[in-house]
Design a protein around this nucleic acid. Structure first.
Lengths: 339, 339
DNA sequence: CTGAAAGCGCTAACAA
DNA sequence: TTGTTAGCGCTTTCAG
């Protein structure tokens, strides 16, 4: 039970007084400058532990002139963002990057409307641009190093690391077509996201180019969530002419579709092929290993930190832009159509 | 294409010079002190936008004497932590709490071994204590306001908000017993966590007290993940004398067990009852709504911020300890045994 | 090897 | 209403 009382915060001066040295010397032992007399150093150490003294990090930064060592990670706070494999992988990558670069990681879950309270941050990483374009613009305006993930914001003067989602959608479609499918359905991602729109675009174009017709009844507008996927699956399966394959814009959705299929006695991949997007390890378990399109989320997050960190530290300048290629991962959930 | 060149960081002095006023006046308009002459204020504003001046947050803090306004959230970095509904709900609650208290949220994903680089933080919230007990002890030692979530750390001089997990396990067992089940299995959570151990303890004790025998073949040591749950389910279902009910220490696991059951043609709840833990909304979708034991994760996170924030701001002192009660949520996945 | 002194960029009395 | 003057707590020359 800690004793109470208004304990005034102790500072380097108190320590210096108690050790009977100057504050400079205390500062030296704090910073492990080797040229301090052993005995004096010991005395200082004692005083430090006596007072449980912890240097004021703010004052240190100001004196050292080190501008903020924190990176802000801004994520649109729409419900469910956290529950997506996408956001979580990004976080892990960013967390890891910050750990290795010794940067602090500050989270900002935002509605996108209020201007970010971002004064603490030396750099900003945006998880995507959804309704928060103005925040990105603010960052650009006041010169804060910023990078946008998973959204090739070519119209803004900002760095980004994105994935070629058009290609991703095309890869899925091509694979399904190559297997011989003609009746191919899709559940899209959230169409507010560039990724969602582009995956669908690549998918649809590829179908057209291959001369595979795309019925509107094979289209379901989703939002990456399992819930939507279930609804979509139920609708697809009830069709007079059900699809023989479906492309889901996230693995979570693909997995849910498999569940619905099994519940209805529809066999995967014999009766229906399912391909996902993400390469979520959850796809490895379950009844059949999921065929999917992989995107390197963790690596993106990690690289984002490196880029922004380097700009913050003045090692780099200018815009950094990179578009990564997604990759087909063939497992067990797709096969040629039987009907 | 930004012009390059070593642009020296501009400070309040530059702005003052350009607006031809004292830095105090600039400071005033920065802080929206109302007593500034309109015209002068406008001149200052101009200078500010001209230079794209942003006050140095570090210097502001030092001058204002406001100790850190950041709360650190420390989560053990074991693989999969992020993928659990548990961690994610906590995060949401904490994120929300910080937003309303206007505190910054700094994440620390830690292996538990290295002493936290936590100088930035005015307070710390620990997601649990797993292998990072020493970090909690450090915080206590240097007087950083700290709170542990989901772990009643009575042996440490620290605040906590926990859930009565013994009771949670008991609630699940009681319900199953009341339905008439005699062959009840369980997949536990990670036994490194207090929650995992206590849930099992409450479950087992209740069975014993009710005179329901508990076979070791009905026990599977899990880790909250779907993967373990699948393995457990496969083992349970293959038993000569399979259980008629199973208690899973997380909804994720419960959901996976339902999947395995359906794949094997076992009907839920007719052939087997399943009860989970968490009240994960995912349990609402899927083929049958999941019966579960609810714990108020979001609220815990939110309250934790309030507690730590108040201590940081000197509004409160002393230890705060609270144990919340879990609650039975009856839905469709449990029924009396048929055999 | 140690200490005095001058800031880091800003805020906050206190005067004017 | 505005400016002068001290600091906030620490680091860092520069002498000694």
């Amino acid at each position: 039970m800690g004793m109470n009382g208004i304990t005034k915060r102790i500072s380097i001066t108190d320590v210096a007084r108690r050790a009977d040295v100057s504050i400079t010397t205390v500062s030296r032992v704090l910073n492990k400058v080797p040229t301090v007399n052993k005995e004096i150093a010991a005395r200082v150490e004692d005083a430090i532990t006596f007072y449980k003294f912890k240097p004021n990090a703010t004052a240190q930064r100001l004196a050292r002139g080190t501008l903020s060592t924190a990176i802000g990670f801004v994520i649109p706070g729409f419900p469910g963002i956290f529950h997506s494999f996408y956001a979580v992988e990004l976080m892990r990558g960013i967390g890891h990057g910050c750990e290795t670069m010794r940067l602090d990681l500050v989270f900002h879950i935002t509605d996108g409307l209020n201007p970010l309270r971002s004064s603490y941050a030396g750099g900003l990483i945006f998880a995507d641009i959804i309704e928060n374009r103005s925040q990105v613009e603010d960052a650009i305006a006041d010169g804060t190093p910023a990078l946008v993930l998973n959204h090739a914001a070519g119209d803004l003067d900002v760095s980004y690391i994105a994935v070629d989602n058009v290609k991703g959608g095309a890869i899925a479609a091509e694979y399904l077509i190559s297997l011989g499918h003609k009746r191919i359905a899709t559940v899209t991602g959230n169409m507010q996201t560039q990724a969602g729109r582009e995956r669908f675009e690549g998918f649809q174009k590829t179908l057209m180019n291959a001369g595979v017709s795309f019925e509107t009844e094979y289209f379901y507008k989703g939002d990456y969530s399992r819930r939507c996927a279930r609804l979509a699956a139920e609708r697809f399966f009830a069709l007079d002419n059900p699809p023989t394959a479906v492309f889901a814009a996230s693995d979570d959705m693909a997995l849910e579709i498999i569940s619905v299929a099994m519940e209805s006695g529809i066999k995967v991949p014999e009766d229906i092929s399912i391909i996902g997007f993400d390469d979520n390890p959850a796809g490895l378990f379950g009844p059949i290993a999921l065929t999917t399109v992989k995107q390197p989320l963790f690596a993106m997050g990690e690289e984002a930190v490196k880029v922004v960190g380097d700009i913050m530290q003045g090692k780099t300048q200018g815009l950094f832009r990179k578009v990564l290629s997604p990759e087909l991962i063939v497992r067990e959930s797709c096969a040629p159509p039987s009907s």
